[in-house]
């Protein structure tokens, strides 16, 4: 399998789906000449024509709303909102319209659309360009929220998202675009709503998603050198949420730690921890802990920003605290 970047994997997914289905089109912020703020759509307008790949003004409300309308009109739009921070300007369309069409009108119509947005911090972009707002959207029934961590998952999930008949918010991570990984060529689909065990272990389950999956894997490798074997579950999709894979892992390891870049309160980790204790309380040998982003707006200064985002050291420390509660 070829080693390609996350950016290339997403690009391949778009290219393959546009070739496969003429109803797929891309519009949004800076997708043509600029090639997408992170280069994902580079060259697509040239190859597929500006009828299928075209720029929209910086006006997220109409981008998202036009995507809903286009989907109702029979197309399968992939709308580029640039970043999840800007999706706040489209939140009304995403939550009040995209998530409601199917239900509010009695199932007469669904809206097959994908909205792509970059989330996460770590690039010193300060507080309004570094947020991890996925839990806000994952809260909403009617939406699907996908957060790939690897190039292979990026490709497979984006292709599935485009083929899915429901609205999918596809959240990429700002620091992953240059990360390389093995990606199958051609048809490679990853089902929405399926988590994956990215690393097997017997001592504790680390539940992560997006970039934190890679950080959790890094922590697991370091812990292994100390004789602790952590299993890493990558959620991949936040809604639908695959608790089966998480619970199966917890029933094996009897301990769980959630890892998220987003803020702790009311977050994904809180949801996972709650569901584990509801479904597998008797399997637990220790209280579940959460490693989360520090609850502050992300600062610009490098040292301050780094202090706010979870890293392998913080995960390792938390893992040892969980293990200490159980006496091995």
């Amino acid at each position: 399998m070829p080693m390609i970047t996350y950016r290339e994997a997403l690009h391949h997914a778009l290219r393959e789906e546009m070739t496969r289905d003429e109803r797929v089109l891309i519009f949004g912020e800076d997708v043509v000449a600029y090639g997408g703020a992170y280069g994902v759509t580079s060259g697509l307008a040239k190859d597929y024509g500006e009828k299928r790949v075209f720029d929209a003004p910086i006006a997220e409300g109409v981008i998202a709303g036009a995507a809903v309308g286009a989907a109702m009109g029979g197309l399968r739009p992939v709308a580029e909102l640039m970043t999840i921070n800007f999706a706040l300007l489209a939140a009304d369309q995403i939550i009040n319209h995209a998530a409601k069409v199917m239900h509010m009108f009695g199932g007469q119509m669904s809206v097959p659309l994908v909205m792509r947005a970059v989330g996460g911090g770590g690039a010193q972009l300060a507080s309004t360009h570094s947020q991890s707002l996925e839990s806000m959207f994952a809260h909403v029934p009617g939406l699907k929220v996908v957060t790939p961590a690897t190039p292979a998952d990026g490709k497979g999930l984006l292709k599935s998202a485009i083929r899915d008949d429901d609205p999918v918010l596809f959240i990429e991570h700002a620091l992953l675009y240059r990360v390389r990984g093995e990606v199958p060529e051609g048809e490679h689909l990853v089902a929405l709503g399926k988590a994956e065990v990215k690393r097997e272990g017997k001592d504790i389950t680390l539940v992560a998603y997006s970039r934190m999956t890679l950080v959790a894997l890094q922590a697991a490798d370091l812990l292994s050198q100390e004789g602790i074997e952590a299993e890493v579950v990558d959620l991949r999709s936040l809604r639908p949420l695959d608790m089966e894979t998480v619970l199966a892992s917890v029933r094996k390891t009897h301990r769980a730690l959630t890892v998220e870049e987003a803020w702790r309160s009311y977050g994904i980790g809180a949801e996972i921890a709650s569901r584990i204790q509801e479904e597998a309380f008797d399997d637990l040998d220790a209280p579940i802990r959460r490693v989360s982003g520090v609850e502050v707006p992300l600062p610009y200064a490098k040292n301050l920003e780094q202090a706010a985002i979870p890293d392998a050291q913080r995960i390792m420390k938390a893992v040892k605290e969980v293990l200490a509660r159980t006496g091995g």
Partner: peptide, 24 residues
């Protein structure tokens, strides 16, 4: 195609429906 209750919110949808009409 609806009946929408967020004031002004369906105007972008009309644009998208128009886009689909042209494209298809």
């Amino acid at each position: 195609y609806g009946g929408w209750a967020i004031v002004g919110g369906h105007l972008p949808l009309a644009v998208g429906l128009g886009l689909a009409s042209n494209y298809l």
